[in-house]
Amino acid sequence: MFIIGVILITIGVTFSTLGALGLVRMPDLYNRLQTSTKATTLGAFSTIIGVGFLNPAWLIKTIVIATFILLTAPISSHNLARASHKWGIPLSDKTSVDKYDSKSGKKE
């Protein structure tokens, strides 16, 4: 149990840091959303479950918190992406194609 917990927390901390690095390095908002929020979600998920393994009496509570983060993170990042597209944030120059027209999408 102890070893699994330590491994899980180490993975989680690593992915959180990589997500933060992605947030700083990526060229435009959408790529930042991609790398950052979701790497951080796995990071926090893994850290919290890892604490549950270190301290087995807390396991159920930590699974509840981790599941909550896993369920809500995609909803907030999806909402932010759509809001930014309607707000008019430009995509990076490397983008090859943009098939989403948020103005026409709003009518339906």
Partner: peptide
Amino acid sequence: NSITLTPGTLTVD
């Protein structure tokens, strides 16, 4: 949600 959770793809609408 599954598409959004796997990094590299993000559902916009």
